[in-house]
Amino acid sequence: MSPGPDFAVVVRRSAVSGRAYGMAAAAGVSVGVFVWVLATASGIAALLATSAVAFTVVKVVGAGYLLYLGVKAWRAALRKGGDLRLDLPDPGRRGPLAAFTEGLLTNMLNPKVALFLIALVPQFVSGDAGLGDALVLSLIAVAGTVLWFLLVANIVGALRRLFAKPAVRKTVDGLTGTALIALGVKLAVAGRS
């Protein structure tokens, strides 16, 4: 629930493209959480945490992706243009699959998610737990993620008319871009601890 890259992507998608696109981004984040929890419960995420090379590769790719999203948001904030037309399904003319992919990649390319789950999951899964236990834990994590981000997407989507005002839209794009770039830089310089 803490603000981070996933939160920024869901808020921006909901504000700029609408509730359905925010919910698609939320679904992407949730699938990412599901994969990370399964990877953690099965020990795969521990390999990422212990391998400096694997961690660095995921970290650099993830930081690059956050920087890309941040620059894209900044460009949108600086672009001159008229009012956002709410009758368009997506101002970027990209479908819900693009929003889903943004959410998924933002989550999956963040090695800090793996480190967080490595610290958390073992408290809930015993050493002799089977795949079924890991699956149940994954579904619980996904349910919490889905509920939270659907709530965020729906609240921001309900305020979309406010976000359609050029000054507000540019402010949201600028702030989101700044947040994503800052998170990308923070991820790029972060260690494994």
Rank of each mutant, 00 (worst) to 15 (best):
V33A: 13
V35G: 02
W36Q: 02
W36H: 06
L38K: 04
A39R: 01
A41R: 03
A41S: 15
A41H: 12
S42L: 14
G43F: 12
I44Y: 12
A45D: 12
A45F: 10
A46F: 11
A46G: 14
A46E: 15
A46V: 12
A49I: 14
A49Q: 15
T50F: 13
T50S: 13
S51F: 10
S51N: 13
S51M: 08
V53Y: 05
V53N: 06
A54E: 14
A54P: 00
A54V: 15
A54T: 12
T56S: 13
T56D: 15
T56M: 09
V57M: 11
V58N: 06
V58T: 15
V58A: 12
V58R: 03
K59L: 14
V60P: 04
V61N: 04
V61E: 03
V61S: 05
V61K: 03
G62A: 10
A63R: 01
A63Q: 02
A63E: 03
A63C: 05
G64N: 11
G64W: 05
G64F: 05
Y65C: 06
Y65K: 06
L66H: 00
L67E: 05
L67C: 11
Y68C: 07
Y68R: 12
Y68P: 06
L69T: 01
L69A: 04
L69G: 01
L69S: 01
K72A: 09
W74M: 01
R75E: 04
R75Y: 03
